[in-house]
Design a protein around this nucleic acid. Sequence first.
DNA 1: AGTATAAATGCAATCGTATGCATCAACCAA
DNA 2: TTGGTTGATGCATACGATTGCATTTATACT
Lengths: 343, 343
Amino acid sequence: MHQPNDTDMNTPPYITLSKVTSRQVADKLGVSQATVSRVLRNVPGYQYSQKTRKRILEEAERMGYRPHAVASSLREGRTRVIGFHNQNSELDVHNIFMAEVIRSLQQACLEISHLLLLHNFAPDVSVSNRLAELTCGRVDGLVVHLQENGPLAKGIAQSGLPAVAIANRVESLPSVGCDDSTGIRIAIEHLVERGHERIAFAHSPYPLEAAQARHRAYIVEMEQRGWQPVSIPCSNHDTDTTFRALQSVTPRPTAVCCWNDVSAICLIRACNRAAVNVPNDLAVVGFDGLIDKLMMPFNLTTVDVQWARISQTAVHLLMAMLSGESVPWATNVPPTLRIGETT
Amino acid sequence: MHQPNDTDMNTPPYITLSKVTSRQVADKLGVSQATVSRVLRNVPGYQYSQKTRKRILEEAERMGYRPHAVASSLREGRTRVIGFHNQNSELDVHNIFMAEVIRSLQQACLEISHLLLLHNFAPDVSVSNRLAELTCGRVDGLVVHLQENGPLAKGIAQSGLPAVAIANRVESLPSVGCDDSTGIRIAIEHLVERGHERIAFAHSPYPLEAAQARHRAYIVEMEQRGWQPVSIPCSNHDTDTTFRALQSVTPRPTAVCCWNDVSAICLIRACNRAAVNVPNDLAVVGFDGLIDKLMMPFNLTTVDVQWARISQTAVHLLMAMLSGESVPWATNVPPTLRIGETT
DNA sequence: AGTATAAATGCAATCGTATGCATCAACCAA
DNA sequence: TTGGTTGATGCATACGATTGCATTTATACT
């Protein structure tokens, strides 16, 4: 036991969890267990007399009978549970991001009467052990957030367990995520409208597919306009990295597209310290739309990734896969621009 | 299906999830299914020849056999899954708070090789339906975050399912939370050291037990020093409520203890707008210690509630209850003061 | 050689539910 | 009356793993 500071040692009045079974209800009433099961679930194609039905309903209620989910799952071959796996066990870096993903996924599961099971692993757990845990029958399907199309992605795909990659596309699995190109495009169009031409891009230090996609989209947008792309590195930990890199560029960009919200905020913070005015001296656009969760003292202009829709789409894809339907391999949810005070 | 924006309609190369069973492995080898099961799990008290053991291990590996978790759960009467239920389906208000609770709980579960299942409900789901869902055998125990000792708390207690209330104490269940009195005490002692005497308390608009406890502790601390307690209302939505209420108090307090971090930040934001300097004109202390997740441009002085330890303790309590041990009814985890730039 | 002992393995029940098929009574038409 | 149909219900198995007990085979000891 973890040693607690201050406790009072009353013995709790525990009743051992005495699950009532359908057979117990049946025996009490002198009917068969099958009848109880069928009456309670209103199985179509079977008729029961009003009298029997009423007796069973009442007795079940009285005895506090609840069908045992695990037994049902075993029998039916489905659990009505969806798993969520994210690759790095430390949610720290993407803390708020992960919180939002989990929140929206749970909401989406709720809507289809499913539950969300969190599958995380210690960093030292091997791929095959992860696979074993993920495919041991606890969940009907999997939503995963992976960094890359590595052995885990391939293993999941091979396992036959329906799985959808979220946010980051990986080749081996169907994926649903933000339409990054559109996101970058509307961000840049917005900056252009505001009169900016020297627009830099703060690039992710992580090898995330989504980050790469945004970077590529940025370059395309710039080149289409005949402007020089300026990519500056960026770190979520060292808040000054981006700022310093930015300062060394000549002529200095007047606007920066950041690959995500957190890096945008870090940049703005560095600007504040250096007395660089945002948005007058430098316009900043983020990407994610989680900013309202961050309770900033200002509103960030950002590309809203629409997590709610992405999550909904992901679980709906899973349901479709479970029904044997074929699903689109890559689904893009269009992002929207949320204009704040930083551009 | 949720209509996606842009899709490409390749049919995915799905293999149906063909679970290999222990019997299939046994039949392949001409041994009994029991032997396979025992060899693979190294059941103590049974010896098997090196040859048989090797053959089974290899064949299981080759066929990709994984024990079916649902079947094991049914047989063993335990799922190795812990449920988390939080009363309000909208995580919005306590968004960051809930994210941290879930994160730390998951970490704690990971350490004891369990999984965390998220149990949330739409607001219109009745108490009895919630109870039915929670006690249907899917989880070995429950961690709950409840607002009050209402019918749900009582129902869970009566159900016999091991459950621990987290953060908020409710009478019907064993609980583990922050030692609020100590938290308030160290916060006030800190302010006193800084020379403050007129210390106000920003009180929660929610009927949360933890909030009440903090308020009571505040009053005790003030009265012990012969000072007048000043409680001002506070809203997490309208950021100005607290500030305005504060302005109307004479003589104006020089410091404010806030019932949580979010309200502290709202207050500080209002101060900024009104050109009231923090900490010189007004010192502010928060409560929760989640502030580093908020990426504020300043460091808040706050009482760190130590979620990691609370969560660990909660799941350990559950494990103890599952072993039939009696557990302390109320466990307090001592908070620590984290000194920032607002005092 | 004969039997006690240990080593190696198999049989079969069980967990609680879902469901195909069988059964039995009642009712109705010919 | 007989045969057919419908209504109401029960029997028994399957889902896949775990485990107490029984059984066989090998080893050891007089």
